[in-house]
Write a protein that binds this DNA or RNA. Sequence first.
DNA 1: TGGATGCAAATTATCTATAATTTATGCATC
DNA 2: GATGCATAAATTATAGATAATTTGCATCCA
Lengths: 222, 222
Amino acid sequence: MTSEQKDTLAIRISRALADRIISGAIEPGTRLRQDHVAAEFGASHVPVREAFQRLEAQGLAVSEPRRGVRVAAFDLREVREVAEMRAALEVLALRHAAPHLTRAILEQAEEATRAGDKSLDVRSWEDANRRFHTLILAPCAMPRLLAAIDDLHATSARFLFAAWRSEWEARTDHDHRAILSALRAGQIDAAAATLARHVQWIGTKPVRTSSGGTREAFSIVG
Amino acid sequence: MTSEQKDTLAIRISRALADRIISGAIEPGTRLRQDHVAAEFGASHVPVREAFQRLEAQGLAVSEPRRGVRVAAFDLREVREVAEMRAALEVLALRHAAPHLTRAILEQAEEATRAGDKSLDVRSWEDANRRFHTLILAPCAMPRLLAAIDDLHATSARFLFAAWRSEWEARTDHDHRAILSALRAGQIDAAAATLARHVQWIGTKPVRTSSGGTREAFSIVG
DNA sequence: TGGATGCAAATTATCTATAATTTATGCATC
DNA sequence: GATGCATAAATTATAGATAATTTGCATCCA
């Protein structure tokens, strides 16, 4: 029982690599050499190549024909691009999900928000954050839309982990709560507007640390 | 000089298959058997598998592990989903492209519209239509956004070709012209609103043929 | 007789191993 | 110091082996 034997090797390898890329364990620009990866996973290079294709489709890797594949670099411009795409698509998803949101789902989303506020590290905050967004959007029942949002979320998460390497200060997520209360009150437009602003903030505002200095990092609360 | 020797075999195969799927030459649900495709292209099955991965990422094929890959089926619900995603993303692209639109670009877009109006078959209409959208959106210079729109456009085109198999009647594209004149007048909001409505129409309205009967097809003017 | 169950064969996908191009690198030479 | 050839490394493609799934057929039970 390695890990979900039903999945194909390529899928498992791509998941493992995606996790490393997102968490920042592999630096942007690093070459992914198929032989090395193949050796590490005890496989041959064919499933590795297929894993690379998947990563490229997710925007986590870029490949130049005959010159190999590298971990995708991402600058602030791309982060902003992804943030705007997320805002547009998440608003669309929310509008379709809203009619199907139950009191139980909103309660779970509130619980996810509380979990995020109590998080002591970036990783668990990101888990809770993702859970929140997934909970309120999934009921739209638009699989392609949700898959697209998921890929964009991965890139946002890369930026998040890169900016907050080790330090992390707990915070209270006012946006999430505002979205939830708007939804409870049936104010879809208000909820959508807050969600859009919330997500678009990513990568826009320089942020101050408790020590008072301005970090070269940016506000990330998506 | 076969066809761009610089591209990899997998890429060429995936392009050829994508074209067939979009044009409807291969029916939805058809199994894509790697050995057959490999034999046809005179290649082995490994590049074929990589081509399949690409098609899956574009949403043109679906694969079940260990059970092969089939041409993706698409129902009206997915067409509507794609239309709404396109509307959201194209509006975003247009807002960023607008400041960079030159008189020359708008003239080219007008030319593309004229070409569409004069088209005698679906295929050339779709070519012109795609050219129009690409022209006014590309200046946004957001590569990831443009790539996403392109994939969505492919699914729209599938639906277009499926609905209008052989028959095609010339039409005048009023929406395209309205968008252009709004852009010329600097009315970005109006242009964006028209674009959104224009794209969202896909798959919503039953349409009457000149013979008077109601087709079971739908309005497609995206 | 109709239908379900189980076994065997064939088909198909997946993976490994090997060969052939292509790109990068280092050294010698001009 | 620059150019060109030779060598090395890595990617791309092929062929063969393995494993899983489907299909056809026979058998057994109702």
